[in-house]
């Protein structure tokens, strides 16, 4: 004992306190003889798809009215997105815009009407640097470790700061109870309540079960997805051999949805 100096004593004291703080619940459990508690209580499903940062590539050449209809339909159906016809209170996760509206900064007087009015599928861009996450006062919208910009509907207070922050108009607010506007509900997914903001969640619930996003599945190859940090992923190969654009890239939000022309 005599060779412990003051510094070391403090170190041990500190470590001991730290362990005590973190570990006292373990002692409580051990007291009950339940060693199983040492096993992690919450786990990712083994079949869950994982990535460092999910991204999407939408090939505009392959989009036609049928694919657009199928993608929006399946997304809105499986997520119980209400169909509200009044544009004031519309709720949309993925929808069709004309090229000139999706990319207003590229508008050009001499652009052919075909390109100007070319259909584009728009959705949340799952930005790498998302302004909506930055402004949210309760962390109700947050970025998951895999890059998905998520919504925690249980926590949202409905201040709509994220809607002002999003430069892509990707967010919708429940101006009233959405339930009555959902026909053919999907019993496996919840609704939302009035007064919260919602948007595309990159089908996190499907990825966590090992399934691709619903729109990707319905798009017949027009929408591809993958881990953009993985150089061998399908989307990285597409991006390295094609010219791709992103919406309002100059704002520095680093959208994860790419468009092929």
């Amino acid at each position: 004992m005599s060779n412990i100096n003051r510094r070391e004593f403090l170190k041990i004291l500190g470590i001991g306190t730290f362990m005590g703080l973190g570990g006292w619940s373990i002692f409580e459990v051990v007291g009950k003889g339940e060693i199983e508690a040492f096993v992690e209580k919450y786990k990712k499903a083994p079949e869950a798809l994982q990535a460092k940062r999910w991204a999407m590539v939408i090939d505009l050449k392959k989009l036609d009215q049928k694919i657009i209809h199928d993608c929006t339909e399946v997304c809105h159906r499986i997520h119980n997105v209400p169909k509200i016809l009044n544009p004031k209170e519309e709720i949309k996760w993925i929808w069709e815009e004309k090229f000139k509206n999706a990319f207003p900064e590229m508008k050009d007087d001499y652009m052919s009407p075909e390109i100007k009015n070319m259909p584009v599928l728009v959705l949340c861009n799952h930005c790498e640097n998302p302004p909506c996450v930055r402004v949210c006062p309760t962390k109700a919208t947050f970025k998951r470790k895999d890059g998905i910009v998520m919504m925690d509907m249980h926590r949202c207070i409905g201040c709509r700061f994220c809607m002002a922050g999003c430069p892509y108009g990707a967010r919708s607010f429940n101006w009233r109870d959405p339930r009555q506007y959902v026909k053919n509900e999907n019993p496996e997914f919840p609704f939302r309540m009035k007064g919260v903001v919602e948007k595309c969640t990159f089908c996190y619930e499907r990825l966590d079960r090992g399934l691709p996003p619903a729109c990707v599945e319905a798009s017949k190859g027009a929408i591809m997805y993958g881990d953009i940090t993985d150089p061998n992923s399908e989307i990285r190969k597409i991006l390295s051999s094609n010219f791709a654009i992103r919406r309002k890239a100059k704002l520095g939000t680093k959208p994860s949805v790419y468009y092929l022309l």
Partner: peptide, 28 residues
């Protein structure tokens, strides 16, 4: 706790005190 694990951490499985695994979902 289930809600936060699923929504915020992307963890969907619960291992109970017997070591049995369950999908964490109120509805499902």
């Amino acid at each position: 706790e289930w809600r936060d694990a699923v929504v915020r951490d992307g963890k969907t499985l619960y291992v109970n005190s017997q070591g049995k695994t369950f999908n964490m979902s109120l509805q499902n």
